[in-house]
Simulated scan of single mutants.
Amino acid sequence: MKLRSLLFLILVAFSTTAFAQSKFAYTNVEYVLAQMPESQNVQQQLQTYEQTLSRNLQNQYQTFEQSLAQYQQSASMMTDSARTARETQLQQMQADLQNAQVNAEQQLAQRQSELLAPLYERIQNAINQVAEEEGYTHVFRAQALLFAPETEEISLKVLAKLGITVEEAPATDLGVGEGDN
């Protein structure tokens, strides 16, 4: 029993010492990304790609609408088997249109990931450099924090590492509001 108590005290002392040696900071990655000149280029590329996908979907939709209108005009003159075949074709066109919309959304998300990955990598490298130079053991995303002192906000330092100068610090809005408990 004494051995267990001794081990517990050693563990508590060690963890307290380790925690006391920790140095924390946070950064607003989205703010840093928005300040990067390359970010505007990425947004323009994404907008162009989205417009292309949208035009393709619109063309498919118009083709479907035309086929549906033709069917509705001639359905009364069709045989039952021809009408059934045409309805099956229209249902398949509608399903293809829905699949195309889902695929377009996935393609846009994939393209966004591809274009942003190098920017996020540069941001992460800058965060790592700032953390090492400033002696931070942990750097958190500002969005994940409920409260943190503004003195531990390193977004401007990260931007400086990226060679970007800004006039003002990002709005942190991390403090606990009046009356919140």
Rank of each mutant, 00 (worst) to 15 (best):
E121C: 00
E121R: 05
E121M: 04
E121W: 04
E121P: 00
E121L: 03
E121Y: 07
R122A: 06
R122T: 01
Q124V: 10
Q124M: 14
Q124T: 15
N125W: 00
N125T: 01
N125Q: 07
N125F: 01
A126H: 06
A126C: 08
A126Y: 08
I127C: 00
I127S: 04
N128W: 01
N128P: 00
N128C: 02
Q129L: 08
Q129S: 11
Q129K: 06
V130N: 11
V130D: 10
V130I: 09
V130H: 10
V130K: 09
V130G: 10
V130F: 12
V130C: 13
A131D: 00
E132I: 02
E132R: 13
E132F: 08
E133T: 05
E133D: 15
E133N: 15
E133K: 13
E133P: 03
E134W: 04
E134D: 10
G135K: 10
G135Q: 09
G135D: 08
G135C: 13
G135S: 12
Y136A: 08
Y136S: 07
Y136F: 13
Y136I: 01
T137R: 12
T137K: 12
T137N: 10
T137L: 09
H138L: 06
H138R: 11
H138V: 02
V139N: 14
V139H: 14
V139Q: 14
V139I: 12
V139Y: 14
F140G: 11
F140D: 10
F140C: 10
R141N: 15
R141L: 15
R141E: 15
A142W: 01
A142D: 04
A142I: 00
A142C: 06
Q143L: 06
Q143K: 05
Q143G: 04
Q143M: 05
A144K: 06
A144F: 05
L145R: 03
L145V: 02
L145N: 02
L145P: 00
L145F: 03
L145G: 03
L146K: 05
L146S: 08
L146V: 05
F147T: 06
F147D: 14
F147N: 14
A148R: 02
A148I: 02
A148F: 01
A148W: 00
A148S: 07
A148H: 01
A148G: 05
P149W: 03
P149A: 11
P149I: 11
E150N: 09
E150R: 04
E150G: 14
E150Y: 03
T151Q: 09
T151P: 07
E152A: 15
E152T: 08
E152V: 12
E152M: 12
E152S: 13
E152K: 09
E153V: 07
E153I: 07
E153N: 05
E153P: 05
E153M: 09
I154D: 07
I154Q: 07
I154M: 13
I154R: 06
S155G: 09
S155V: 03
S155A: 13
